Computed example of a mutant assay.
Amino acid sequence: MRKTSLLAGLFLIVLTATGQAEEAKPFLTNTDVDLTAILPSPPANDSAKTKAEIAEVLTMQLTRTPEMEARAKADAEENVWRFADVMGPKFTKETLPKLDAFFERVAATEGAVVDPAKDTWKRPRPHMLSDMVKPIVKPSTSGSWPSGHTTVGTMMGIILSNMVPEKRPEIMARAWEYGNNRVVAGIHYPSDIEMGRISGAVIASNLQHNAEFEAEYNAAKAELRADLGM
């Protein structure tokens, strides 16, 4: 029995070291929140709306500054640590393990809810309809509607601001920038961002009724507020 336990422990260590550890489990999936029953369908590829949005993306491509480009590239990461610039220097992965694990599950929830909706609508991204669009982040061919980055950024903003209401205005402004940076990066249309914000708010609201979420939220909140001296 002891030998079996030792082997199991070694196997777990190997998996972790090779990056094959168990992925974060979502709190909800698309069976709990069906975005196809909530959001409208995206504009047609040849519609006046889509053509106007491609023009907006191209205008941004011409007017974005090097600083805007740098922030948009950095915001390609989907994790809560992108909020460090408004949360302060103590907001680090190393000092907040419970918060880190909690938000990994929040991010997994976004994928479990949003990806099936993207696959249903299959809206082509701007660079797929116009070769004039040059994304400054890794190009993607997954569905564009709604923006997954914006969805998770909105979710993270809402949840973080509930944990630290003292910083709510700064946190939500950062969440809005996180979404806007997908247009700056040339990888989404403005309406994708709007739908992502709606999706993020809807999912965040539904999470409030999930017992697992509530338990992990309370533990992560306590850890965060203690770390920030609040």
Results as ranks from 00 to 15, higher is better:
residue 61 Q to F: 06
residue 61 Q to W: 09
residue 63 T to Y: 05
residue 64 R to Y: 03
residue 66 P to G: 08
residue 69 E to I: 12
residue 70 A to H: 12
residue 71 R to C: 00
residue 72 A to L: 08
residue 73 K to S: 10
residue 75 D to M: 09
residue 77 E to S: 15
residue 79 N to I: 12
residue 81 W to F: 14
residue 82 R to E: 05
residue 83 F to K: 06
residue 83 F to P: 01
residue 83 F to S: 04
residue 83 F to C: 09
residue 84 A to E: 12
residue 85 D to E: 14
residue 88 G to L: 11
residue 88 G to K: 09
residue 89 P to G: 06
residue 92 T to D: 07
residue 93 K to F: 02
residue 93 K to Y: 04
residue 94 E to K: 15
residue 94 E to M: 09
residue 94 E to W: 08
residue 95 T to K: 15
residue 95 T to A: 15
residue 96 L to K: 05
residue 97 P to N: 09
residue 99 L to E: 05
residue 99 L to R: 02
residue 100 D to Q: 06
residue 100 D to K: 06
residue 100 D to R: 03
residue 102 F to G: 03
residue 102 F to Q: 05
residue 104 E to Y: 07
residue 106 V to E: 02
residue 106 V to G: 01
residue 108 A to D: 12
residue 108 A to F: 11
residue 110 E to D: 14
residue 112 A to S: 12
residue 112 A to W: 04
residue 116 P to D: 14
residue 117 A to R: 02
residue 118 K to A: 00
residue 119 D to I: 06
residue 119 D to M: 10
residue 121 W to C: 11
residue 121 W to T: 15
residue 122 K to R: 15
residue 124 P to T: 03
residue 126 P to Q: 08
residue 129 L to A: 05
residue 131 D to K: 14
residue 132 M to C: 06
residue 133 V to K: 08
residue 134 K to M: 14
residue 136 I to D: 01
residue 138 K to G: 10
residue 138 K to I: 12
residue 138 K to H: 11
residue 139 P to G: 08
residue 140 S to I: 04
residue 141 T to H: 13
residue 143 G to S: 07
residue 143 G to V: 01
residue 143 G to R: 01
residue 145 W to E: 05
residue 145 W to D: 08
residue 146 P to D: 04
residue 146 P to L: 03
residue 147 S to G: 09
residue 147 S to I: 05
residue 148 G to Q: 02
residue 149 H to T: 10
residue 152 V to K: 00
residue 153 G to K: 00
residue 156 M to F: 12
residue 157 G to N: 02
residue 159 I to G: 00
residue 160 L to H: 04
residue 162 N to Q: 15
residue 162 N to H: 14
residue 163 M to K: 05
residue 163 M to C: 09
residue 164 V to F: 11
residue 165 P to L: 11
residue 165 P to K: 13
residue 165 P to I: 12
residue 167 K to D: 10
residue 168 R to L: 07
residue 169 P to D: 13
residue 171 I to V: 12
residue 172 M to I: 15
residue 180 N to Q: 13
residue 184 V to N: 06
residue 185 A to D: 06
residue 190 P to V: 08
residue 191 S to K: 00
